[in-house]
């Protein structure tokens, strides 16, 4: 586990950790604790010693494709098992079969790749999932299905067959099924993929209105989703936690290093063209004629990812040191 993950493991030794814990779930214990989690698929290392603590509230998981986000979420959802490491979910040990079922009774899970039963109607599918979630009382089940249908704006298509839905609607059905039973832990793997802007806003609203303040962990490629709904954010790169903190802290990683210029300049860590046609640069040195702007979560993430790429090319040990030194500067 890298140094930053150690900071986030709940020991409370780092300023960042203390600030996050106090700010979000003061006096509460973590809903999910992960220690030294490792998972390989053949020769590919998906998770390489992940340490993590997740409190109540929404935690965003950011990372490029192949960073290990889906593997981590599937382990949290008790669908996959780690090769090594310790895990406590809602106080239960998923290695124990009886406790694993207790976790599942409190879990809402939306996998990244979610198929659908072609011949089921939307309400039928949700009713079926409700039974699988042990909601056997018909009256309660009907009420619960109606609740999640309303929450995801699927009421008008409740009687429509799944095969007749658009991809975005099917994604909303996936979110709806995860919400069934008012889970204490919501594991959502890219929940906003395929949603239109309006539905993304509705989804953000939905998360903020969740009853009983469950532990929510969602992976996404949408940094603005993280900025909008997440109280915490974890950046996973190459199977390791590279950052854990608030979205503001992540954005702060790029503070004083984001410039906007009319032309692309060399020397920056990350450069991309924004919607207004201007070039956004993240780096130590300001390009000529550039304007310093406030950093966003995306800037912070991209700077982190850019650094990791550089560090990765220079060797993993050195990369870690480089990252630590920069992080240390940032914290100061």
């Amino acid at each position: 586990m890298g140094p930053v993950s150690a900071e986030r493991s709940g020991a409370g030794s780092s300023p960042g950790t203390a600030a996050r814990g106090d700010a979000t779930v003061a006096g509460d214990r973590p809903g999910v604790r992960v220690e030294g989690l490792r998972r390989r698929y053949g020769s590919t290392v998906a998770l390489d010693g992940v340490d993590l603590s997740l409190m109540r509230g929404v935690t965003g998981l950011l990372g490029p494709n192949g960073a290990g986000k889906t593997t981590l979420l599937s382990i949290l959802a008790t669908v996959a098992s780690p090769d090594a490491g310790r895990l406590s979910v809602l106080g239960f040990d998923p290695e124990d079969s009886a406790e694993r079922i207790e976790i599942r009774r409190r879990l809402g899970y939306l996998p990244q790749e979610l198929g659908y039963h072609r011949h089921f109607k939307v309400a039928e599918f949700l009713d079926y999932v409700a039974i699988l979630k042990e909601i056997v009382d018909p009256g309660r089940r009907r009420a619960e299905v109606a609740r999640v249908l309303a929450a995801t704006d699927l009421g008008p298509v409740a009687g429509r067959r799944m095969r007749a839905l658009s991809g975005g609607m099917r994604r909303r059905v996936g979110i709806a099924q995860a919400l069934l039973g008012k889970p204490q832990l919501l594991v959502l793997d890219e929940p906003t993929a395929g949603l239109d802007p309006e539905q993304r806003l509705r989804f953000r609203e939905l998360l903020s209105e969740l009853p009983d303040h469950p532990v929510v962990v969602l992976s996404t490629h949408q940094a603005d989703d993280v900025a909008a709904v997440c109280s915490e954010v974890v950046v996973l790169l190459a199977g390791r936690v590279r950052f854990a903190g608030t979205p503001e802290q992540l954005a702060g990683l790029a503070a004083g290093r984001v410039w906007v210029a009319e032309a692309r300049q060399t020397g920056a860590e990350v450069v991309w063209r924004s919607g207004d046609g201007r070039w956004r640069h993240v780096g130590e040195r300001p390009p000529a004629g550039a304007e310093l702007v406030s950093p966003t979560v995306e800037d912070g993430y991209l700077r982190l990812a850019g650094e990791a790429a550089v560090a990765g090319s220079a060797g993993s040990a050195e990369g870690s040191d480089t990252w630590r030194s920069r992080r240390g500067r940032q914290d100061r």
Partner: peptide, 26 residues
């Protein structure tokens, strides 16, 4: 790691789980 079972986020106010037979029946 197990301490959370009785405190904090894992305190469970849910109604008791139905029997396996009821789930099987439904």
């Amino acid at each position: 790691l197990s301490a959370g079972r009785t405190t904090g986020a894992s305190v469970d106010p849910r109604e008791p789980s139905p029997s396996g037979v009821r789930v099987l029946g439904s």
